[in-house]
Amino acid sequence: MSKREKLRKERDYDAYVKQKTPKPTYLKNVIWAFCVGGLICVLGQFITNVFENMNMSEKDVSTARTIILIFLGAFFTGIGVYDKLGKRAGAGSIVPITGFANSIVAPAMEFKREGYIFGIGAKMFILAGPVLVYGFGSSVLVGLIYLLINK
């Protein structure tokens, strides 16, 4: 079989498979994501308001809120609830900061059996590591560009 013929065959098969494969239930998924994601943000707003009423600075409020939400995400992952929520809510529970906590706790728990150093310690970041790399990396870049522009 020539290379072109092979590519054509693969393309045909791919199109055929696409037609046979069930499509995601978009509407249901979107509604779930919207509601759960929205509710987690409402909880975040509530925490924000409580701290603001305690006259904390904006930066401290933001940090405290993040820490509390991360604790909640971690805790509900630990007791085995967050994955069940995620199954329904999808991005609704992945995209909020609680989902970031879930992405750290889940592998940490999973790889405990490989030890506390190379298991928990190393595998904790298999999913969240890239988030930090690109988040921190791009923020430094933004800082440097800001300096360049405002020189």
Binding site: K59, T63, A64, T66, I67, I70, F71, A74, F75, T77, G78, I79, G80, I97, F100, A101, I104, V105, A106, A108, M109, E110, K112, Y116, I120, M124, A128, L132, G135, F136, S139
Partner: peptide, 22 residues
């Protein structure tokens, strides 16, 4: 500015992994 969140994630992540099993 991200330090609080990351530290919390590391500490709570570690803690939960020690306490709970998948």
């Amino acid at each position: 500015s991200g330090a609080g969140g990351v530290a919390a994630a590391v500490v709570f992540g570690y803690l939960m992994a020690v306490i709970f099993n998948p």
